[in-house]
Amino acid sequence: MSSRSLLIAAAAFGLMALQGPARADVEPEALVEPVAEYKLYVLDNLDAFVGHTRDFTRAIEAGELERAQSLYAPTRVYYERIEPVAELFADLDASIDAREDDYEKGVDDPDFTGFHRLEYGLFKQQTTDGLAPYARRLMSDVKDLESRVQGLTFPPAKVVGGAAALMEEVAATKVSGEEDRYSHTDLWDFQGNVDGSQKIFALFKPLIAEEDPAFVERVEDNFAAVEATLAHYRLAANDPEAGFVSYEKVSDKDRRALVGPVTVLAEDLSTLRGKLGL
């Protein structure tokens, strides 16, 4: 057992003891607007996701390896932003975003499809050969996702809980670099998760800002710390579209530096539901 996990365990217990009972002084009706605005945000991102997926999968079908490789990360980022809603559909979450570890036979499993199957072909095998059926399947899954989300009444607790879920996702699978193990585009996903989490926080912040300014400040400081570390690895400081360097180039020190604020964000944001009476 490492001393770090002991420290984290101790810190977690300390935090839990400090938090005390959750408060719920927020009027339920006040949650209607942020939940609605969040759905509009998700719909906008889905719209962009469908468009980017079309370009990405067409490049694969046309056998344009380099173009397909360059479109992989900028396409995924939309899914990563809206993951709290997208992953409510278990079948599509599996066919779009499952990793080889989720299957008994790994990369050879016939059910292994979606982004990570394409990633394996494009970045590990360095070819578009044989990928067309996966590309077509991805396109139809993404369209299916869009129409299901359009018809979905968003469960308020899942929306609010999504802020913490996204940061837990970062802590659990992004920092280690296992999510995009062949493309090493983990920082794109990382940014997508952070964007999605920040959006939810920003929408509900006005409801708690007066009551709990210290909490709001701490969360904003930690988001700023994460953003600052991410900014360090941008290819072009002023152009978010340019993206990030390979995750292999992120120093161990910076990987560790990300764990701190991300873990505290996940802990802090997990109290949001209670604070909002959900």
């Binding site: 009027e27 009706e29 949650l31 209607v32 939940v35 609605a36 509009l40 719909l43 968003f154 308020p156």
Partner: peptide, 19 residues
Amino acid sequence: LARQDFIGALAEYKVYLTL
């Protein structure tokens, strides 16, 4: 039914009206 039970429906209605 609690007031919370209507949040989802009211939010979805607002989305519908906006679209």
